[in-house]
Design a protein around this nucleic acid. Sequence first.
DNA 1: CTCGGCCATTGACCTGGATCAATGTGCGGG
DNA 2: CCCGCACATTGATCCAGGTCAATGGCCGAG
Lengths: 218, 218
Amino acid sequence: MVCRGLPSIAARELSLWARSAVIDAGTEIPLSTRGEVLVIVSGIARAEIQLDADRRQITRFRYAGDVLQPGVVNGISEICRTIAVTPCILCRIPREAIEDVGQRHPKVRERQLLIATSEAQSLARHTAVVGRLTAMERLATFLLELSTRTGRERSDGAITFRLPMTREDIADHLGLNVETVSRNLTRMKKEGLLELPKPSSGIISSLHDLRAWVPFAD
Amino acid sequence: MVCRGLPSIAARELSLWARSAVIDAGTEIPLSTRGEVLVIVSGIARAEIQLDADRRQITRFRYAGDVLQPGVVNGISEICRTIAVTPCILCRIPREAIEDVGQRHPKVRERQLLIATSEAQSLARHTAVVGRLTAMERLATFLLELSTRTGRERSDGAITFRLPMTREDIADHLGLNVETVSRNLTRMKKEGLLELPKPSSGIISSLHDLRAWVPFAD
DNA sequence: CTCGGCCATTGACCTGGATCAATGTGCGGG
DNA sequence: CCCGCACATTGATCCAGGTCAATGGCCGAG
């Protein structure tokens, strides 16, 4: 998944350089090292901005397969810290690897650019989620994304998924507060869209009805 | 400004390929053409997402010097449309130019990536603005950015700037509505932060007091 | 098994910003 | 110069979501 869309030769060359790392839940994933690229092999992380003592924005969650490119280079520090929500396994590709392989395989650079622009795309989208959607719509959008990224379809068509982030994390991602998240989750339960066998695991009983709450075409 | 940070040889080579274009106010800037890069030479544009008949999010305004890279490639359309707020002069750099010059000057590719990641950075930041700030804070953040990008400092230290976008544009950028924008502008006037000789031109009388409303370190 | 702490849920109430409804106001066209 | 229209401001009221305050439930340590 690191190298989806790359010629297999380039992928093999890159993998020769790769190192791995394990990050405990709750621990920050260090992004600083110049030009290094990280790939999440497994686990979930959150990218967050701390505004002041009691305001935080989680700009996005990071799932297995996501690529973390170095923020902005040259001393200007990345605005977000990335913190593991569950234990994470990372694949680290040092700067020299990218440069070395990138010289021989232009697809590598191309893909790096693609990753960055699609990152911008999804942040633009999230701007609209947080700026213009109602609480139910925000939550539906989030659950849909979480389940498509990490869920499993059951034989009866329902989708099961883990919800390892706290309600507070969800709230800070969606620009809401904990209580509003909680209330709207129970509303979804009452309306038969969702089941929550435990607070940390969910089942989308009616994908169709959930989708109806998401105003994006997709 | 197109080529800030590039070796001058690369810049000169790129400029050989450059074409220009003029876009009327209110007209969409076509981004579609595969791989073409646009640079705003003068004017202001807005990048917007239309959610449905009556909800819109302006993800960002684009000022002179901004570089518009093609959204996401390969048929998957860019999520935002970009529309000129004032008449705009653009510089168009065709895909072949990037490829040609990029092959000889790796800095070109590097800079392209830098542009894309810093785009993501500023969208992440805006996510926090819209998700967590109060109306006053959002407006202050916006005015500060607008004035640093397009304003002129007067001899007495005040900063004058044009406000060519409508109140509705500002509202849709900040996740507010027109009336709230208007009310908070007059509040700023009353508190001596701001003057509005005309609705479409402003003067920041007290940069210091305005900054106090912006929770970002910067 | 029991205790304590943290997280989630629920309820009662409050409020910042939205909505609805008039006025202002500036500008382009005749 | 006047008119008309689009944009901006202002006021009155409303409400989605925030705040405050219990209560419940799960889990890990002992």
